[in-house]
Design a protein around this nucleic acid. Sequence first.
DNA 1: TGAATAAAAGACATCGTTGTCCTTTATGGT
DNA 2: ACCATAAAGGACAACGATGTCTTTTATTCA
Lengths: 157, 157
Amino acid sequence: MIFSKTFGYALRGILYIALMQDEKRFVQIEEMAQKLGVPRHFLGKIMKRLVKEGMLLSVKGPYGGYTLSDATLQMPLLRLEDLTDGLGTFNNCVLRLRACNATNPCPLHFQMERIKGDLRRVMETTTIADLLHKDKKEFINSIATYEFDGSMLENEN
Amino acid sequence: MIFSKTFGYALRGILYIALMQDEKRFVQIEEMAQKLGVPRHFLGKIMKRLVKEGMLLSVKGPYGGYTLSDATLQMPLLRLEDLTDGLGTFNNCVLRLRACNATNPCPLHFQMERIKGDLRRVMETTTIADLLHKDKKEFINSIATYEFDGSMLENEN
DNA sequence: TGAATAAAAGACATCGTTGTCCTTTATGGT
DNA sequence: ACCATAAAGGACAACGATGTCTTTTATTCA
């Protein structure tokens, strides 16, 4: 499936935080989980991890929550993938053969190196900020899980 | 990681069988597992599945084992991927959003549709037979797991 | 018919991912 | 100081992918 669920939750979480920065300094996990339709405690674990890795800032207590810096907005998606899924997709043989390389290629080596190269390029050259340029409401819909029928988020903002 | 271990084992198993067809009518699971460096019983399960799906033929008892038809050699890799991993990679949003599509795209939709399209094309247009054209010994090395130093398979054939 | 061989079948174990729950720690407001 | 809030931390559960083991079924050969 290319990415883990963890990566998906992490990216959507970060995007949601980024999107809310003009409204509030900190976003709470509860709000994120509800708006995104994601398991609350699992998302909490992921966020904690990202905080530890310096990708997010967190503040405990009332009015606390998560926030992110401009530096994070400029990070390539590859960095996030590294923190969640690791880079096995790019560093390992698709058939997981240890000895596979250009001089001793597995049967799929060259075809897949091309694909992996293309994918890596996207992940390297696309930043968090690059994903953000859109109408805010529409954007939130596009990262929420449920089948959106136009009625759910309208009255919250 | 793009493909599961199961897919890798399945493909390598099929390729090994295909490669042995000029020497013996049937290939035994024991031999496959040893030569490929793959867990024997797990490989057995996978082969059983492929037999049930019509991709392989099996015969029980002495001199029995697995064999495959020319039709199988002409099958695209996508068919094997479907039987093992399913086609979620192509049919689902990379972020697993149910509502994601061209008119309501997730933030990664268009970049990833391109990658997925490229990958799908490779899997659709490449057949088992396409992977086979090589020196036999060299080819077996290329699908064996261990780090090959030139000494391991030499005395077996 | 009996013995050996090999796949099929199914029970069970391990492990990583995903997910839940409860307790602890930090912070802000009163 | 006390209370409420919210993240951090850790224990544990559920599940699917992966892997092992034993029994059953089919086939060959003598």
